[in-house]
Amino acid sequence: MPRPKKPRFVSGYPTIAAFVPQGVPITGEVMLSVEELEAIRLSDFEHLDQESAANLMQVSRQTYGRILFTARGIVGEALVTGKALKIAGGDYTMRRGGRRHRGRGRRGRMGGQE
Rank of each mutant, 00 (worst) to 15 (best):
R106D: 13
P25M: 01
I26R: 09
V10Y: 07
E51C: 08
G98D: 10
D49I: 05
V80F: 15
L48G: 06
R41G: 04
M57N: 07
A71G: 00
L32Q: 11
R8C: 13
R106A: 06
P25T: 01
S52W: 04
V34F: 06
I26C: 02
G105A: 01
M31P: 07
G65L: 00
R106W: 15
S33C: 02
V20K: 15
R104Q: 06
G23W: 05
Q113D: 14
Q58A: 01
F19V: 12
S33K: 14
G23I: 02
R72C: 00
Q62R: 15
A88T: 07
E35S: 07
E51W: 12
R95S: 04
E51F: 09
S43K: 15
G90Y: 12
R99Y: 08
I26T: 01
G108Y: 09
Q62E: 10
S33G: 07
P4A: 07
V20R: 15
I87W: 13
F69T: 04
R99L: 02
V10S: 03
S33R: 09
D91N: 15
D49S: 10
K86N: 06
A54F: 04
K86R: 10
E51H: 15
A54C: 02
M110W: 11
D44A: 11
Y92R: 12
S60E: 04
R107W: 08
V75K: 05
P7E: 02
A84Y: 00
R109F: 11
V10F: 08
V75T: 04
E35A: 05
G73P: 04
G103H: 06
L85F: 05
I87G: 04
V59R: 14
G97S: 06
G23F: 03
L37D: 10
T15K: 15
M94H: 11
I74A: 01
Y92A: 04
G112A: 02
I74R: 07
S11Q: 10
T81M: 05
P25K: 05
R104F: 03
R106H: 14
E77H: 14
E46N: 08
G112C: 02
L56S: 00
P4C: 01
I16E: 15
T63F: 03
G90L: 09
R102E: 06
T93P: 09
T93K: 13
L68S: 05
G97V: 04
E77P: 07
D44G: 06
H47R: 15
R99N: 08
R66Q: 04
G108I: 01
G111A: 05
V20E: 14
R3P: 14
D49H: 11
G28W: 01
S11Y: 10
G108R: 13
G112E: 02
I67G: 07
K86Y: 09
G65I: 03
G73S: 03
R8Q: 14
T63N: 03
G98I: 04
P14N: 03
P2N: 12
S11W: 12
L85W: 03
M31E: 09
V10K: 08
Y64M: 01
R99G: 03
L79F: 14
P21H: 08
A17M: 13
N55Y: 10
